[in-house]
């Protein structure tokens, strides 16, 4: 069980070490790191408002982290969570706009479902291409990201455009909005966080308890042995990309339904790419990913408060970078160790 402790320890130690390095930098720019960190913690968790903000930011990050993490477990490198999130958001918006008069009990699940389907369909294109032609998913998902991004720009400046100023779509029907659990000033904490945490637990059960999870991980670890064991590789690729895309699509739908209530150009804003770092820090484990998403979200909200004590918020980018580097470097080291073993 050494491996499990190791997997748990590495991210935590990386965060501690990253904070120490960042502290040195803060000293070098002539500030007190303790003051800065205190401001950061207060900014992220100090009061109800700060805490709410952090949780709201955590919600989509859990889902994109899960999307990428699930792909990793199946041996797929899904870089396309960004595009899948956009497509999920777009489809949820289009459906949500047209549900006026439909009761929330129907409108909310329907909108969410179409968001999931949007991400799922978008990712399945890459999955299908890989299964049929061997086209690498890294290349195809990056291409699909651009297509999704430009497609959404076109839609909110053309057919779906309303008002002036920032390009945006019309609002979704009130019944399709997620009802707030907690309203703090202008911020609404919705049940979205519950849904994303639930998704993590569902993914945990799927991976660890079901026969499908057994097959998915077997393909991820060793596709040759999986094939020998009667598992269809191509079926698995398409299915896993679809599940991965569904999670990213759900992230997009929740942002529309809980936060912006419409599609904006800035809706995804790199959260799909953050999913890669989060999956890495969370060691591709669903529960780990929840905490990794919380960490990144807290760093982001806390950094604003840090600026008030005179420390630039970009310090957190350094922290984040170091954490990712260390977690990834651990994998490099372990990969080398494993390779050596195989050779011998």
């Amino acid at each position: 069980m050494n491996r499990r402790i190791w997997a748990f320890l590495v991210p935590i130690l990386s965060v501690v070490f990253a904070l120490i390095v960042a502290a040195v930098i803060i000293v070098l720019i002539g500030q007190n790191p303790l003051v800065a960190y205190k401001a950061m913690v207060l900014g992220a968790f100090g009061n109800v408002q700060a805490f709410t903000d952090t949780i709201i930011k955590t919600t989509p990050l859990i889902l994109t982290g899960l999307a990428v993490g699930f792909g990793f477990r199946a041996g797929l490198f899904n870089i396309g969570a960004e595009g899948q999130m956009i497509m999920g958001g777009i489809l949820a918006t289009v459906v949500g706009m047209n549900l006026r008069g439909i009761p929330p009990a129907l409108a909310v699940p329907l909108t969410m479902l179409f968001g999931i389907l949007g991400g799922m369909a978008w990712a399945s294109i890459a999955g299908y291409l890989k299964a049929k032609t061997g086209a690498h998913e890294v290349v195809t998902t990056i291409m699909l990201n651009w297509i999704a991004s430009h497609l959404s720009s076109y839609l909110i400046t053309g057919p779906l455009a309303v008002g002036s100023g920032t390009p945006k779509s019309p609002e979704i029907a009130p019944s399709a909005k997620l009802p707030p659990i907690l309203t703090v000033g202008a911020m609404e904490l919705t049940s979205g966080i519950v849904i994303s945490v639930l998704s993590a637990f569902l993914m945990y059960i799927l991976l660890e308890k079901t026969t499908t999870g057994y097959e998915v991980k077997a393909v991820g670890f060793n596709p040759y042995a999986a094939e020998y064991g009667g598992i269809s590789i191509s079926k698995n690729i398409v299915m896993c990309m679809a599940i991965s895309g569904a999670l990213a699509g759900l992230a997009g739908a929740l942002e529309v339904m809980g936060q912006y209530h419409r599609f904006l150009g800035t809706l995804s804003g790199g959260k799909g790419f953050d999913g890669i770092s989060i999956a890495l820090i969370g060691q591709n484990h669903p529960i780990g990913i929840i905490f990794a998403a919380l960490l990144i979200a807290a760093l982001r909200t806390g950094s604003n408060n840090m600026q008030f004590v005179g420390v630039p918020k970009h310090i957190v980018t350094i922290v984040q970078g170091i954490v990712i580097f260390l977690v990834a470097a651990d994998r490099i080291v372990r990969t080398i160790v494993i390779r050596k073993k195989v050779k011998r």
């Binding site: 057994y214 097959e215 060793n222 042995a225 999986a226 020998y228 064991g229 009667g230």
Partner: peptide, 21 residues
């Protein structure tokens, strides 16, 4: 190593490979 086992899986997972379903 390449075909017969999913080496990262525990042994009890490997003895059902192919009959796991």
């Amino acid at each position: 190593l390449r075909r017969g086992l999913v080496t990262a899986y525990p042994a009890y997972f490997n003895v059902i490979l192919g009959r796991h379903m």
